[in-house]
């Protein structure tokens, strides 16, 4: 059975949804999402510490999407806009969850998987060292990324990055990343 975007999107919609989106990930979209989620967090009367964490992690998640999305597989080019991604921000009991999904070319899967596994294997202190090392030693890419986003997310949330690579066809996988932010952080 092949991977189905619509099923995936429906499955993500558990908990209390603050925002769910599928489509082109553009700068305007990012601005709108940030505004919407910020005002919802205000409405929830969430402690400023948690509000900031969710907002920060959301910024990184969106900008990771923005910078790293690959083209769509050919059969979807008619159906979906280019720069296609999925974003769901929800609250489940005592956690916020930020889910992102995007197509990724098969040849990048191994590298990304190893990178996430590495991040997940590190302690808080080791993550801090890794962050500082990348910050101080790696050149910033043209895209403005620089490999810090996932490390920063792991550091700020204190939780493991939860991911799945679903094989779509020989050329593409669908990459889903779930990030959790605990309400009673630390």
């Amino acid at each position: 059975m092949s991977f189905n975007i619509e099923d995936y999107y429906t499955d993500q919609n558990g908990g209390e949804i603050l925002l769910a989106y599928k489509g082109s990930i553009t700068t305007e979209l990012i601005n709108n999402v940030l505004d919407t989620v910020e005002s919802k967090l205000q409405d929830f009367n969430e402690a400023s510490k948690i509000r900031k964490k969710v907002y920060n992690v959301l910024v990184e998640s969106l900008q990771n999407l923005f910078h790293h999305i690959d083209d769509l597989p050919e059969k979807f080019r008619e159906t979906y806009e280019s720069h296609f991604g999925i974003l769901v921000v929800s609250k489940e009991k005592t956690q916020y969850k930020i889910s992102t999904g995007n197509f990724i070319r098969s040849e990048k899967v191994q590298y990304l998987k190893e990178k996430i596994d590495k991040i997940n294997s590190l302690s808080k202190e080791e993550l801090k060292e890794m962050y500082k090392f990348i910050l101080n030693h790696q050149k910033i890419s043209e895209k403005g990324g620089g490999g810090l986003g996932l490390v920063d997310i792991a550091r700020k949330t204190g939780n493991k990055l939860d991911y799945v690579f679903d094989k779509f066809d020989e050329e593409f996988y669908f990459f889903n990343l779930d990030v959790y932010i605990d309400e009673s952080n630390n």
Partner: peptide, 13 residues
């Protein structure tokens, strides 16, 4: 700063 992203963090450095 109230917020800064990782893309800014290198520039701030």
């Amino acid at each position: 700063l109230e917020y800064f992203n990782t893309s800014s963090s290198k520039c701030i450095l």
